[in-house]
Design a protein around this nucleic acid. Structure first.
Length: 158
DNA sequence: GCCAACGTTGGC
DNA sequence: GCCAACGTTGGC
């Protein structure tokens, strides 16, 4: 199966690409996803070797800032069992985990962040889920064509 | 900080 | 099963 591409949103004040880069082994578990659609994408679609755009959201200029790869497929998110975690879910149990996470590893930081306005300006990228009105999905698929274009922009090519 | 759009919850 | 109320996301 061909490698697939994704976009992961994160508020950099909570967790940034640099945070990922500074992790031991430059890898981390993507915990805290509490949306069924996003969970199902992790559970059903994401495979080791898939790549993702790391996107910084909820800031002045939202932007894709680099890439990472999936290094472990979906498994239970431990924070759902921890009453002290903000992601705790009392309706979940280790027997019947409701929420999943994947592990990702840092790959690249863009020379030039690819901003949301920049993405919006390109007709070739107009079909991206990211641009859909009201699309708040924190994990979303990216078409290979869009992936290529954004990586080129990130390299600083025109 | 505002608020539109969306997902979830819970009363009925 | 409907839908109003609520909480959250995220661009602006």
């Amino acid at each position: 199966m061909a490698r697939r591409y994704w976009l992961f949103k994160s508020e950099p004040s909570a967790y940034s690409l640099d945070d990922l880069r500074n992790e031991p082994g430059q890898r981390a578990c993507w915990d805290g996803v509490r949306n069924y659609q996003a969970r199902n994408l992790m559970r059903d679609e994401m495979k080791v070797g898939d790549r993702l755009l790391f996107y910084h959201s909820a800031i002045k200029v939202p932007a894709a800032v680099g890439t990472a790869e999936i290094v472990r497929e979906a498994y239970p998110d431990h924070t759902q069992f921890d009453p002290r975690s903000p992601y705790y879910d009392a309706r979940s149990s280790p027997d019947q985990p409701r929420w999943l996470m994947v592990d990702i590893r840092f790959l690249t930081a863009f020379a030039e962040p690819v901003s949301l306005p920049q993405i919006r300006r390109l007709p070739e990228l107009s079909s991206m889920l990211l641009l859909k009105k009201g699309c708040r999905l924190s994990l979303q698929p990216v078409e290979p064509e869009a992936w290529k274009i954004i990586l080129d922009l990130g390299r600083g090519k025109k």
